[in-house]
Amino acid sequence: MSGEKKELVFKKIGIAIAFSPRLEALIAEAAKMQVGLKSEMVFIHVGNKSEEDVKTLNKYLEKYNLLNNSKLIWQEGETVETILNICNEEQLDLLVAGALEKESLIKYIMGSVARKLSRKIKCSMLMLTEPKIESSPINYIVVEGSNNPKTENTIAVAIEIAKAFKVKNVDVIQETDLNKAVLIRSDEFKENEVAKHKENLIEEEDKRLNYILSCNDCGDLKINIDRIEGKPGYIISKYAREHHADLLILNSPDRKMNLIDRVFPTDIEFALADLPCNLLLVNIKED
């Protein structure tokens, strides 16, 4: 564990907008974020700049008090690549985009804009499944606690967000693939040996998470460590859905995802295939 944490706060947030029925809700969510995180907001739209669209956008920005304290970037080009370029140029810490909970199989395999962005983006990304106009408190966050060097920062981000939005509960989830770890040819083990190996693995995981949590100033926040067995990525996603989490926070993928990852899903692809709630992929930029 490095113990060296990088910049945690999302200082500069980009909001990818489209002129869909969810535009106002997305801007309303951006306004809540600006208040909570005190971030600089950049609205990004890729497409033609018509007078009517400008009028509509300005109306909403004004309504949510964002017209004079946010930046608007309006560019033409291929949507995903253009947004990615803007993210790099503007050095955004977080990109926010609306996303459907579930796409059709073909669209999922081909990739929708939000999902394509999530697979390629270098900064963190928040996918909002149901952006709301009205105030909707975040009560419950589920965050990944896997054995990965990125986890320490991901948990730190979850705690920052929880504090900023006065979240009541945070569950740190260890996804333990004990099937593979312990039961490979379990005939090789005596019954007590299997239990002993499991205990050792669990103790090791607990120690690691307690160490991470001890390094973060959690204050009065109620943090629960839970352990679930199953396929990493799928099982935390299922947990978030079943427990009605408001936000699921995962480590960003360790490598570039491609079409094969959708055919043979790994980690975040399980979540992307069927978003259980709003999803934040944490990718802290290197200093």
Partner: peptide
């Protein structure tokens, strides 16, 4: 016993 996702993620 083969885990395709682990193989896909191999570094």
């Amino acid at each position: 016993e083969v885990d395709l996702s682990v193989i896909r993620q191999q570094g």
